[in-house]
Design a protein around this nucleic acid. Structure first.
Lengths: 351, 351
DNA sequence: CTGTTAGCGCTTTCAC
DNA sequence: GTGAAAGCGCTAACAG
């Protein structure tokens, strides 16, 4: 029927508005900027034309002209399936929107090659700045040279071999405090289910964990320590094997969200009696009928803070600031079986 | 020290590459497109220059020229704090990336005015298409006229008063099947904690719920029915009040994720014995020591499907297709107390 | 108060 | 094989 793409190309341009209003495109542009020098009647004419055509300024063209590629900030996360990152995105979004910037959200899924491509792509789109939670500690693709001065903020891990702002969680202290609580309760055989050593958070959290043992003068048994990818299924398997040892740990420390969930699953399936501690609070943690010590922090705030640092850099003389490093505090929360326990509806039937 | 903005403006253009390689910009462009007519040695020269300068093509300029504003698809969600939407975003992202598109993710936070602004903003940026989960059932701002033919896909609710593709969850069937299970167990006094009636999912899920009662010939007691915003705290309060009635329900149906969590919290705090059913599976649902019937579906798939429909429209003759409506199936899952129950580490101490 | 000219960085078209 | 000119839609800079 219709010639191909007909209605899609019907997007009116400033020239169409100008023609309809009987003025030049420059006048239209000025009216859109609410330039006080334009007469009231001209403004009215132009605005009528805008309304009639449903005109929407082409920001791509505008941004090209004013030298700002895309009014957007790029956000590269390493695992969108992890709720931590959606919280982060939420925080970044709030801060970005306040400056009329959108967020281009991309997911490296933990793959560095992918991350390299995604960053390059964002740079090609000329985003005003990039926030990255790097998949590995090889940050060479994020060097200032590669970025041509596009502002960069790292989240959850510090720059390595490059200069950049970053916003971190106090992983060390959080892990140490949580571990201390286990030790205070008399646990000496404590399992550790951690992240790969190439991940900074993995290293810090392990350091904090270990430091609590040193302070307490308790020997850390290496047989109970595991480093691996953060994946629920993998963690579950690892924890199951720990629980299956002939001399199993009496407590477990999980280095993050995914490991914690995996650990909970493994413990729940086994007949083991074991205390759990670890990073990342989660919804309903308090309602699991399980003794639990979690390290919590403000993930949304992390995103907000990252965006704030980035936007500071975007400012005219923002490049002159020294590298910033913001560390957000952690808190330790303890959960236990609900007071009084559950009142089960037997067999799911009415009471 | 440095003249303001110095290093930030140092982003090389195609002209810089051309000058360094001693060719015209046209030749550079052709090399970047791997045009077979260019001689091998010219290609080598140009590629060396590209590498030396770290040149990255300005996609903003490119897209302007080729008439595609931003190689991005806009995604407007109504509550990023709800894990359903991050799952959705994940699905959209996967499909988009396969076409070299990025996702511009924005959050209306359930506010329609905001949604209107966000959609307008995305249109100004000339995204290739928009995926929206509308905050309300007033879709007038999404009419073809307002979109100038930019492809649109609605998720989780059908178009109302406009034509658009949509991808839905079979809310009706899911709710009915879950309710049936409660009825089959002899519950007749069942509370309903639902969404506002202006939200389509709210209506459908209530219809499904009610239909199970009709089929079973059980009268639905309106005193137990609540419609409200989907917010954990609000739901908790509502459920608490239901539980506090002198003749309380023996079971509850929660219309979504947020209401379900709120209901669980309320039930756990009370001394009530009550069965729970409702929409949206969640991580660890199986480990809550609580009888639970949940309606589950593939949220990532929903996003993938939405992106697929959108990309079909973006194709040259995509506008000629009739409006599509995809309905994804639901499944009902039952959880109960873990077999054998938890083995508690008493007082969090070692065994 | 409003219009003209030029150009952001790239690509399409036509020329050699 | 390669280049020159023109223009995508917009706005800064200078007219008038």
């Amino acid at each position: 029927m219709s010639p191909e793409g007909e209605h899609r190309n019907a997007v009116p341009t400033m020239r169409d508005v100008a023609a309809l209003a009987g003025v030049s495109t420059m006048t239209v542009s000025r009216v859109l900027h609410d330039d006080p020098r334009i007469s009231a009647e001209t403004k009215a004419k132009v605005r009528d034309a805008v309304r009639e055509l449903g005109y929407l300024r082409n920001d791509t063209a505008r941004n090209l002209r004013i030298g700002r590629g895309a009014a957007a900030i790029g956000l590269v996360v390493s695992n969108l399936a992890n709720p931590f990152y959606s919280q982060l995105a939420l925080g970044v979004g709030v801060a970005a929107e306040a400056q009329n910037l959108t967020v281009m959200l991309v997911n490296s899924a933990g793959d560095r090659d992918r991350e390299v491509r995604l960053v390059r792509d964002l740079l090609s789109r000329r985003v005003v700045g990039i926030i990255v939670s790097p998949a590995t500690d090889d940050h060479s693709h994020l060097a200032a040279r590669a970025l041509h001065g596009t502002p960069l903020v790292l989240v959850a891990r510090p720059p390595k071999g490059i200069t950049a702002d970053c916003v971190l969680v106090d992983d060390f202290t959080g892990a140490r405090e949580a571990a201390k609580r286990l030790l205070a309760r008399g646990h000496t055989k404590v399992g550790f289910v951690g992240l790969p050593p190439t991940v900074w958070t993995g290293g810090e959290r392990f350091r904090g964990f270990r430091s609590a043992f040193e302070e307490a003068g308790v020997r850390l048994d290496r047989r109970y320590v595991r480093h691996q990818e953060s994946d629920v299924a993998a963690a579950e398997k690892t924890v199951s094997s720990l629980l299956g040892m002939r001399d199993p740990p009496t407590a477990l420390f999980a280095a993050n969200n995914r490991n914690m969930i995996g650990a909970i699953r493994a413990v729940s399936r086994s007949a083991s009696s074991i205390a759990l501690a670890g990073f990342d609070d989660f919804e309903l943690a308090d309602l699991l009928d399980l003794p639990l010590i979690v390290v919590t922090y403000d993930a949304v705030g992390l995103g907000r803070e990252a965006a704030r640092l980035l936007l500071e850099r975007v400012e005219p003389r923002g490049g002159d600031l020294p590298p910033q490093r913001v560390v957000l505090p952690t808190a330790v929360v303890e959960y236990g079986p609900p007071t009084g326990g559950w009142h089960l509806a037997a067999e799911l039937g009415p009471g």
